[in-house]
């Protein structure tokens, strides 16, 4: 369940795991190309759903019967899921035994 022993002499308790990755609280390990990729994928949805909103705030054209703004958001929700699937599949933390 919790195989990792507490780090001795750890004055400021912290999470110690190999999978910190590019979280907002990202560890200070040297980034591998894989973690750069995952970081980029995680940022994409934020660009789609925050940065680009002012440019897609319109009703027309309708796509798949949806007003354009709503269509745009739906597409990005699906893409978020796709991005996170790639992140999951390429993250070494999820390999067999990567339980941390």
């Amino acid at each position: 369940m919790n195989p990792r022993p507490p780090v001795p002499g750890d004055a400021a308790p912290s999470h110690t795991g190999p999978s910190t990755g590019p979280s907002p609280a990202g560890g200070r390990r040297r980034p591998s190309s894989g973690s750069v990729l995952r970081c980029g994928l995680a940022v994409l949805p934020f660009i789609g759903m925050l940065v680009l909103i002012p440019f897609v705030n319109r009703v027309e054209p309708y796509v798949l019967d949806l007003p354009f703004l709503l269509f745009w958001i739906v597409v990005w929700v699906v893409l978020t899921s796709a991005c996170m699937t790639v992140v999951y599949l390429t993250d070494p933390a999820n390999k067999a035994g990567g339980q941390a």
Binding site: S19, G21, P22, P24, P45, M49, V77, C83, M84, V87
Partner: peptide, 16 residues
């Protein structure tokens, strides 16, 4: 929107 973005954070935050 916000739920989808929140789960992006959760990938790293929740395990930590």
């Amino acid at each position: 929107c916000y739920g989808a973005l929140a789960y992006v954070f959760s990938y790293w935050l929740a395990p930590a």
